[in-house]
């Protein structure tokens, strides 16, 4: 579990529009890497290229290389479906399946691709992942109830349990707390801290305190002007980015002088 991501020369397009240009960076296993930057700088787009979700958008295509250990995610013959099994994702808005119970939400990914589990195995996996997501005690008496009946923060932890249940190598989080209140946000941050012992985690966030709190390394993205492609400005240890960044633009952004 937990693999290293190595991205080189990655450019992503929406049709003819270039959204991000020539990004090269690596993400260490069992660590949290935060992507920060102003709106529209392409950090979410970049995140979605890491599990080949970008190409789901009509007109979305990618140039460049993403290596997961020694596997090229965009190599010939690589099935995007299996990439997404290996690289899990948590979205901005909690999106449990409304037609499924809490239990079935966690088990949803396990029932895919023709794999079948025994009921007892499923029970164990569901419990383990709900516990790991710090949600078990709150939902253990209503596993058969719909997931949409939970609070926003609980729903997001349910989505994390759903993502971890298929045992991915990497967990991508696209502003996972932006729709949550501060208490639920803290719960998710605690969870991220706990999960990083097992997974490679990449988190996009607009909240700089959050980046500083949860991440080991931080990447700053920026764009020259509206309509220009987003670029990686610098990536370094979080301490360094927030205390003594090497690029002026990073310091301006972090200190709130723009963005």
């Amino acid at each position: 579990m937990a693999k290293r991501i190595e991205v080189s020369g990655l450019t992503a397009y929406y049709g003819t529009h270039k959204a991000i240009e020539d990004i090269t960076l690596h993400v260490e296993p069992r660590s949290v890497t935060a992507f920060i930057g102003p709106s529209g700088c392409g950090k979410s787009t970049f995140l979605r290229t890491l599990n080949r979700m970008h190409e789901v958008t009509p007109g979305g295509r990618v140039e460049g290389k993403v290596m997961l250990d020694d596997e090229d995610l965009y190599g010939p013959g690589v099935d995007p479906v299996s990439v997404r099994r290996t690289v899990g994702m948590v979205f901005q808005r909690p999106n449990p399946f409304p037609t499924m119970s809490i239990y079935d939400n966690v088990a949803a990914g396990l029932k895919l691709n023709g794999v079948s589990y025994r009921k007892s195995e499923l029970d164990d996996i569901v419990e383990k992942n709900l516990r790991a997501a710090n949600l078990w005690n709150e939902v253990k008496d209503r596993l058969g109830k719909p997931g949409s009946g939970l609070s926003g923060g609980q729903q997001q932890r349910l989505c994390i349990a759903r993502a971890t249940a298929v045992e991915p190598e990497v967990l991508l989080m696209d502003e996972p707390c932006s729709a949550l209140d501060p208490i639920s946000t803290l719960a998710i941050e605690d969870l991220i801290d706990k999960l990083k012992s097992q997974y490679t985690i990449v988190i996009v966030t607009h909240n700089m305190q959050q980046a500083a709190r949860v991440s080991d390394r931080t990447a700053f993205f920026n764009l020259a002007a509206i309509g220009q492609p987003g670029k990686l400005i610098e990536v370094d240890s979080t301490d360094r980015i927030f205390s003594n960044p090497s690029v002026q633009a990073t310091e301006d952004y972090i200190s709130g002088r723009f963005g």
Binding site: V81, R85, F91, P96, P98, G109, L112, N113, V166
Partner: peptide
């Protein structure tokens, strides 16, 4: 959002 969630699960 739900369709993307399913896709992202593989």
């Amino acid at each position: 959002a739900n369709q993307e969630a399913a896709l992202a699960l593989g």
